[in-house]
Amino acid sequence: MLRSSLWGTVLLGRALQAVLVSLLVGSLCFALMHSLPGDPAMRIAAGRYGPDAMSLQAAESVRQELGLEQPLLQQYGRALWQLAQFDLGHSLVTGRPILEELQVQLGHSLWLALASLLLSLLGIPLGIIAGARAGGWLDRGSQALAIGVRALPPFVLGLLLMWLFSIQLGWLPPAGFGSWQHLLLPALTLALGLAALSCRVSRDAMAEVQQSAYFTFARHKGLRGLTLIQRHGLRNAAIPVVAYLGVQAVYLIEGVVVVESIFAYPGIGHAMVHAIIARDVPMVQGTVLTLGLLFVLINLLIDAACRWIDPRQGGTR
């Protein structure tokens, strides 16, 4: 009884957050995109026709077609009304319904995110082993590796991997999409950056568990090596690691812009940047809204996972 009402509170809270995010995103996108310097009609025309065919004439016809000369308040009201009806409108650049575009892009993005998350899990055992021997060579080595990976921009990392796996080894296609082989390289590029962090987080969590009273007690009891870590280490170290995965998932979906463009992968980050550059307000709104709601959803899942691992965690902290 208590349990279900607790879940009710959590769900209600997240639902409220979802509504707030939608409202905020709707208003913020509109306000910011319209207060940005530069002529939206010009930007949209350049986005549609490219620099070669872009002209003043083209921009003026875009302005008329989209009603950009209407008063701002009128445009804002229309935008919010559409949002309330779950109507995201049409892209100003492609002219297609936003929902259709998002479906395609979100699907690709989710696949990429999932693959990178799975690959990045490889960092966790490494971190746990490193944490079990804090200060050892493996700990130092993995730290240097983590810093090294974080000191390279993702596009450099991506090119290095392409060169290695496609040119030198010939195992994987360098770019494109459509099969699982195409997914591996961009996922690996992202995963390395993620693994660098999750390796450190799990290492720290493990090192902390090791210094705790119950762990010392277990050791005195005579438990050794893997059994010890398995019985008393893993579950306790898991909470921060799982919680961290949630933050990573968000980073993944939004932080993939550069990786997507270097691997010619049709994801949502790529779409968002193009939409911002082209001042495609409905598209910006759609992509940002999707990412925001995804964030709420992931947090909900992480809440659930944490409670499952450690039922002691209540609603209050």
Partner: peptide
């Protein structure tokens, strides 16, 4: 037809035979 925005990637695609 695949649109690949980055020139570096296009070169690697040619080299890899993709």
């Amino acid at each position: 037809y695949l649109a690949v925005g980055k020139g570096e990637t296009r070169a690697l695609m040619a080299q890899s035979g993709e």
